[in-house]
Simulated scan of single mutants.
Amino acid sequence: MSWTQIADKFFVNGQIDAADVAAAKEAGIELIVCNRPDGEEANQPPHAQLKALAEEAGIEFTYLPMRDLNVLPEAVEGLKAVLAQDKKVLAYCRSGRRSSVLFEAAVV
């Protein structure tokens, strides 16, 4: 999997699936953050399904959905709490852009 690394331990990507969760485990990802609301597209796996797969693999999972690029304070605070754990993180949304925008807002 070719994630975009935007910080030492922070990577972003578009929508992930079960194979990506396995690849994340192999790559040492410790926490997955979903920034994509459920139901944006018909073929999108619900976050609860990916959360179950991640937890089975021993990866923590956090759901911080963003409907657009307008960053809500609760999403920023949620990501700050994730970053404070100092774990290797993979954040995803449809394209990776919302995850990147949220990261920038959280580290300012």
Rank of each mutant, 00 (worst) to 15 (best):
G28C: 05
I29A: 02
D38T: 07
V33Y: 00
E30D: 08
S100L: 14
V82F: 06
A105P: 08
N35V: 01
P65I: 01
G78S: 09
I6P: 01
L69P: 04
A91G: 10
V33R: 00
Q49R: 12
L79F: 08
E77Q: 14
A48T: 12
Q44V: 07
I16E: 00
L64N: 00
E60F: 06
T4S: 12
L83F: 03
S2G: 12
V21G: 01
N43Q: 14
L31G: 00
T4G: 12
L72S: 08
D68C: 06
A24Y: 04
G39N: 11
Y92G: 10
K25M: 05
V12T: 10
I6N: 12
L31H: 06
A7S: 09
Q15Y: 03
F61S: 04
R67T: 14
A42W: 15
A42Y: 14
N43K: 15
A19M: 13
E41S: 15
E40W: 13
G78E: 03
Q49P: 00
A75Q: 08
A7R: 05
R97F: 07
N13Y: 13
V82T: 03
A84D: 13
V71I: 15
R67K: 14
V108M: 14
D8E: 15
L90C: 03
R36W: 00
R94T: 03
E41V: 12
A84K: 14
R98Q: 00
V82Y: 03
C34T: 09
A75Y: 03
A105T: 07
K80H: 07
F61E: 02
V21S: 04
D20M: 02
S99A: 13
P45H: 08
L50E: 02
N70L: 09
E74D: 10
F10D: 00
V108F: 15
C93P: 04
L79P: 02
Q49L: 08
E26P: 00
N35E: 03
E26R: 10
W3T: 06
H47F: 05
P45S: 08
E56Q: 11
M1D: 11
L64A: 02
K87R: 15
A18T: 05
F10C: 02
G58H: 07
H47N: 11
S95T: 13
A48W: 11
A52V: 10
R67D: 13
A24V: 03
A81P: 14
P73I: 06
A81M: 14
N43Y: 15
I6C: 07
A52Y: 08
L102A: 02
L83M: 08
G14N: 02
H47C: 10
R67L: 14
R97E: 11
L83E: 02
A27M: 14
G28Y: 06
K88I: 07
V71F: 03
E60Q: 12
E55S: 01
E30S: 05
M66G: 05
